[in-house]
Design a protein around this nucleic acid. Structure first.
Length: 104
DNA sequence: ATGTTGACACCGG
DNA sequence: TCCGGTGCCAACA
């Protein structure tokens, strides 16, 4: 299998599947949907990202995109996510796509 | 087909 | 831990 035709659709579905208070990195979403490149995830969000909670998707470092980091930061905080100096606690809010990890 | 840009990730210092 | 440069893949002109 390689490059499904509904890849963008899957990405949007994956982002929509992210529960509030949780976040996913572009690389994780890409891997989850089958994309080999996290860049494609960003491109898809740029197209129809307005139809999905894109603010729950952030970078591998836990930071946000340059143009959206302001809005994302506020939104994540509103969701109850703990943000530190523009950095989100991935190890705590990183969603695997199965259930919410509870590690304490 | 080629070159450039990009809502990224990884490695080295 | 923070900063910079490099690599990967896909979309666009």
């Amino acid at each position: 299998m390689s490059s499904d035709p509904d890849l963008p659709q899957r990405i949007l579905a994956c982002v929509e599947a992210i529960p509030p208070g949780h976040v996913m990195t572009y690389g994780d979403v890409a891997e989850y949907v089958g994309s080999r490149t996290p860049r494609q995830v960003g491109h898809v969000l740029a197209q129809d990202g307005g139809t999905v909670p894109w603010h729950r998707v952030l970078r591998a470092d836990g930071s946000f995109a340059d143009h959206l980091r302001d809005e994302q930061r506020q939104r994540l905080i509103a969701e109850g996510v703990r943000v530190n100096n523009g950095r989100v606690d991935l190890r705590r809010y990183r969603w695997d796509g199965r259930a919410d990890a509870k590690s304490s």
